[in-house]
Design a protein around this nucleic acid. Structure first.
Lengths: 248, 248
DNA sequence: GCTTGTGTGCGCGTTTATGCGCGTTAGATT
DNA sequence: AATCTAACGCGCATAAACGCGCACACAAGC
């Protein structure tokens, strides 16, 4: 087995299960724990998984719940996210100008994007830009200051660039979704980028799993009615019935 | 069997299986591993497959798991470059606004940069930006279209952003350095970014090993006198005596 | 017939991948 | 808080993979 294949196998195992331990991987792939650890290190550096004590978790899980250990493993969310992303990706039309917000969910979305004619993707995340370019997409990056934690670009340069663009459609993540408080996120500067990018987009989609409904983060970046929400899983009846919520 | 047929056979085997090892291919095609390796190199350069350690994988499956430290180590022996970068890094002063050009030499430079107070680094490369951020530097990225091959940003957005900045000092790489033809590079768009960024910089440094002297690439981005060159190794007497050439 | 160029195989020094041992560290348990 | 255990990282040894230079074979062209 090629080392490269082993890395891919690890990624898909992590994606599917949400998290795995080192011994599990070693057993499944027929190599020692040392090799697995080295692989995890490589993959972590490449931002394909998140290495944690005891094993590895998928990126979004590591991001949302930093303190989470390997004990619980509800991979429900993962299946949901795949369906959400597949549905969202199908909304991109040929000959369009598409905005992709930073965040782990939209990163997953990128892997589902189809190769259509004359589509240009714009993003505020250097990580997302790299993935897009890697998949052969025409990619544009906003300028600005690079926030090390999220690899997102913020500040006046990012906003100024956005002011010159008008997107056919765009996809955003959100830490909180509530009918009253709208879409919210923890970071002021990132909220600004989200707000301005939304303002320049015709068709706005927020992609999120069910867990974000009812949550409220510090900074609001859009009203609840400003975007169509694509989600999956057990969404409460209150939200499920709203006509800008699509459950897949 | 024609070499061309063999190449096609390799591609189809890789496509079908997803990935194959060098010995497998050698066995199947009745040639030695050396030949297979050469073939894989050819096909990799033609972007028909992805060559990895031990064999090859199809392009779809290929995820770049770039490990910077390994890449760096590969030509670590070239201590000329190390000395050049160490010398160049020492030129950065506190409280300054510094431009870092894309390219492999400047990437190496980043590892040598000191942690000074109030220094902001600006770059046109997403890769360089990531490294800078990783080292804890305050980092700004130009906007623009992302060129997949070099991970550099080009186009009107990049140039417009540059127009708003003025740097205390900056570091550039160059594919060709010649007294007559000046500093040259293969890509028109990247040349533009280099040219404009230089125009907005007070102290301009080109860092390069000795091999680039006398070379001329298609597009010129600055006159020979426009920058101070920091180099090392066996530089011809003609260049060594010039007062904007520093040999370390 | 001789030259020139290309493709292939082989040898050899170098690099990379892997496993193992051991001291250290992070979480869990009490 | 103290203790314990599993996980961890690091260095080393080994084997495989690698790249490079060289030699040879064969074909095309002068």
């Amino acid at each position: 087995m090629l080392a490269e294949d082993r890395l891919n196998a690890i990624v898909s195992m992590v994606q599917r299960a949400g998290s795995v331990t080192v011994p599990e991987l070693a057993e499944a792939l027929g190599v020692t724990a040392s090799t697995i650890r080295r692989d995890l290190q490589t993959l972590d550096r490449a931002h394909r998984i998140a290495k944690v004590h005891g094993g590895a978790t998928s990126l979004e899980r590591a991001h949302v719940t930093r303190d989470l250990t390997l004990n619980e493993r509800s991979d429900l969310h993962n299946d949901d996210k795949e369906r959400i992303c597949a549905r969202a990706a199908a909304l991109v039309e040929p000959e369009s100008f598409v905005y992709i917000d930073s965040g782990s969910t939209t990163l997953r979305l990128i892997e589902h994007l189809p190769h259509l004619e004359d589509v240009t993707y714009v993003t505020d995340s250097v990580l997302h830009a790299q993935r897009l370019a890697l998949r052969g997409m025409r990619t544009v990056v906003l300028g600005g200051e690079l926030k090390p934690e999220t690899e997102a670009l913020v500040g006046p340069d990012a906003l100024a660039t956005l002011d010159r663009y008008n997107f056919n459609c765009g996809f955003w993540g959100s830490n909180g979704i509530a009918a009253e408080q709208g879409f919210t996120t923890p970071d002021i500067e990132e909220a600004q980028v989200k707000r301005i990018s939304m303002r320049h987009t015709a068709k706005r989609f927020v992609i999120s799993d069910a867990s974000k409904f009812g949550m409220v983060a510090p900074v609001k970046f859009a009203d609840f009615r400003d975007a169509t929400i694509i989600t999956a899983g057990e969404v409460s009846a209150k939200y499920q019935s709203m006509d800008n919520v699509i459950t897949v």
